[in-house]
Write a protein that binds this DNA or RNA. Structure first.
Length: 482
DNA sequence: CCTTATGACCGC
DNA sequence: AAACGCGGTCATAAGG
């Protein structure tokens, strides 16, 4: 169900994905299957009409079906200790909102407009005529038919030739127009999605932007954020970071940010019990450097930036269920080389290999991937006769316990932090959650103690075989709070 | 006119 | 057979 919220109305304390939805999501973490409409059809075998009282009545009936299942599955503690108490925390965060400096955005908009115009003019010059650069269809024609750039290998099958970033990046060195298009796309994305859109979402009563956090929006148990999505504010490029600088605290206050370090790889160490990975985290080593040293058989001191980059891609890839093809594409190396990296990784981290095999076997047997807390996501395609679908299911089976457990731990930390803020009568407030990061605002006299408290609560959220590590920072805006 | 699909790109 | 997990938003293009 998608309901556009009125951007001018403050989010109310009542959260629509209410009790039946939370129960359904615990048992079956499928975002599309947890709407009142889907629940009514599945558990009551009847369609839902628009009448509010009928919807409520139906959800009460669904509750009667699901509650015993939650108890039988041993999930009542997850419900009572995580999902239910999180709901009011999220409601408070939405109601509080975050302040956005629209003056800064307006100034950036003018600069961006000029840069975009200049880039477009150069693209038209290269093309010999103006056209709509935003239309992949028109752009593909211009680049690959009229200008005769070499089509990517995967072209064919009737569809339009892809003008995706990886394709254009491969052409950029030889054909400057490709780089121009990439730059044009980056800047128009920033302007359209953030610089132009955000000021319109500022609530005039509060002067702040109020997102909606969806508690049942991601199949792994992560939160999602919409209208606006404040979980994808740019950070990776300099132009993008200017937008992050427009997120500011209450005047005279500070922004406090805290983020987990390598939480998914730490969970991998804990779940697999791999001795080398565990050792690296117990010694507080740089995990990518350690992996490079293991994979390339050199001392950590001899690891070059290039080797570390490769090891970092392998570490990320493991969490995503990587293939040699994907790693090769990511690093710009050939598949044989990528296969070698992966083989060496599993030679050194043999416990991770065992964990992956054991996890796939268990998910195949039970049909569900589970988090440490017990949240279950159905993975039906483990037995599919379609090899692509089956491979996809197996990658999901590996990733879900890691990503989902990280989400559970962050939720628990948020509940505890919110509880302490209120118990200790602090003025500081939680504002945003970005999966492994929290953003808060604090008056000057509370800033230092809040920063330490948040870091401590995040690190102490549970005791695993390896330490949980979080870092916190303070700043006058989101970009500079590090 | 509104809705939906697609391709692209932003984040973790 | 596709090729690395999870999301949301924007612009275009096509359908009802």
């Amino acid at each position: 169900m998608r309901r556009r919220r009125n951007a001018r109305r403050l989010n109310s304390g009542f959260r629509w994905p209410a009790f039946a939805t939370l129960y359904a999501f615990l048992l079956n973490a499928e975002p599309s299957g947890c709407s009142p409409e889907a629940l009514s059809e599945r558990y009551l075998d009847r369609k839902l009409n628009a009448a509010a009282e009928q919807r409520a009545e139906a959800m009460i009936a669904v509750l009667g079906v699901l509650k015993p299942q939650v108890y039988e599955s041993g999930l009542e503690r997850v419900y009572e200790e995580i999902d239910l108490p999180l709901a009011p925390v999220l409601a408070r965060m939405e109601t509080t909102g975050i302040r956005v400096d629209t003056q800064t955005l307006a100034a950036q908009g003018l600069v961006l407009s000029a840069q975009i115009e200049a880039l477009a003019a150069k693209v038209y010059e290269a093309a010999g005529k103006p056209f709509n650069i935003n239309s992949p269809q028109q752009l593909g024609k211009v680049l690959f038919e009229e200008l005769g750039l070499p089509s990517p290998v995967k072209a064919g099958k009737g569809k339009a030739v892809s003008t995706a970033a990886d394709v254009l990046e491969a052409l950029a060195a030889a054909y400057p127009v490709a780089q121009l298009v990439l730059d044009y796309r980056q800047l128009t994305k920033l302007k359209g999605t953030y610089v132009d859109a955000l000021p319109g979402l500022v609530n005039p009563k509060t002067g702040r932007v109020h997102t909606t956090f969806n508690q049942t929006g991601a199949a792994t148990g992560r939160l999602s954020s919409s209208n606006p999505n404040l979980q994808n504010i740019p950070i990776r490029t300099e132009a993008g970071r200017l937008i992050r600088a427009a997120f500011v605290p209450e005047p005279g206050w500070n922004l406090v940010v805290a983020d987990y370090s390598q939480i998914e790889l730490r969970l991998l160490a804990d779940m697999s019990g791999d001795p080398v990975l565990t050792d690296a985290f117990l010694r507080h080593e740089d995990i990518h450097t350690r992996t490079a040293a293991e994979v390339f058989h050199v001392s950590p001191l001899m690891v070059t930036p290039e080797m570390r980059r490769g090891a970092k891609a392998v570490n990320f890839g493991i969490v995503y269920g990587q293939t040699p093809f994907g790693l090769a594409q990511q690093l710009g190396i050939d598949r044989k080389e990528a296969e070698l990296y992966i083989r060496r990784y599993f030679e050194r981290y043999a416990g991770v290999r065992v964990f992956i095999d054991r996890t796939i076997e268990e998910v195949r047997r039970t049909g569900f991937a589970s988090t440490l807390a017990g949240r279950r996501r159905p993975i039906p395609d483990m037995h599919s006769r379609n090899p692509a679908a089956r491979s996809f299911a197996e990658r999901t089976a590996i990733n879900t316990p890691l990503q989902g457990t990280a989400a559970d731990l962050m939720k628990l930390a948020m509940i505890r932090i919110d509880k302490r803020l209120r118990a200790e009568r602090m003025q500081s407030r939680l504002l945003l959650q970005v999966h492994d990061e929290l953003v808060l605002e604090a008056p000057p006299e509370e800033t230092a103690v809040l920063s330490e408290m948040v870091k401590a609560e995040m690190e102490g959220v549970c005791v695993l075989k390896v330490p949980m590590v979080a870092s916190s920072g303070v700043g006058a805006n989101w970009r500079d709070a590090k």
